[in-house]
Amino acid sequence: MKKRALNGYLFFLPFGLLYAVFLIYPLIQGFRMAFYEWDLFSAPKFIGLQNFSTMFNDPDFWRTLWHTIYFVILTVPFLLILGFLIAVLLNSRIYFGRVFRTLFFFPYVLSITIVCSTWGFLYQPQFGIISKILKAVGINYTGWLLNPSTAMPAIALTTIWWTLGFSVILYLAGLQEISPTIYEAAAIDGANSFQKTFLITVPLLRRTHALVLVLQTIASLQIFGQVYIMTGGGPNGATRVLIQYIYDQGFRYFKMGYAQAMALFFFIIMFAVGIIQFRLMLREGSDKD
């Protein structure tokens, strides 16, 4: 029995070591750094809670936080609704279902740069295809990424396009777990396919909805690359998001303490969402046992 425990710890050791060095240690360091003023070149100076008071009084911090939440609001509902609808369609009686699934899923594996530069090209005001198509149907609008009110929705659309496949896959997995007998019973009761979808499928997929909601919220809260590549945070800072602000403060202005104070705040938000994820996961675990 002793040997078993020893082996257990030995097997865990490689991971445990890396885990301690690359996750736990930086986390603890991060907590400490938030109380210092440090530009990496001179010695760190302990300043107590000053970084946090700067943060709460920094309008740009609140703006970027709001932009991040705004982005979540713009993306997550669509990722839920569209993901569900497409999954239902793909799961219905159609030809080439697998081919379609493959193609819907493919954008998800493309790297962020490919996605964002391609969409940036589509949005281009002077010769972008989107403006051209809109012009053809009588809408003369070329702003997109250059207009503060449409820039974030445009980035959101790109992101939805990019990650929709993930929602679809999760929903398809959920759909496949529903026993066909339930639909057969409903058909006998005279339900049409619309009723079947919204009265049976939607409630039955409760857990999948929660899962897509939580996972896509977590992904959207972490938004950085899309903004970094497509707008750089502009115009007028309308698309600057929290992670980018942390990145700028840390890696452009080298205000390490301040950046880390905001990173801690971000950590708390993610932690709160993570607890929900945690509970979903544990419930799933106990279902199986």
């Binding site: 690359f22 930086p26 971000f266």
Partner: peptide, 14 residues
């Protein structure tokens, strides 16, 4: 539960 973005700076220094 640890988002990597939250520890990117200390990790970079490490």
């Amino acid at each position: 539960m640890i988002p990597l973005q939250a520890i990117m700076i200390p990790r970079y220094l490490l």
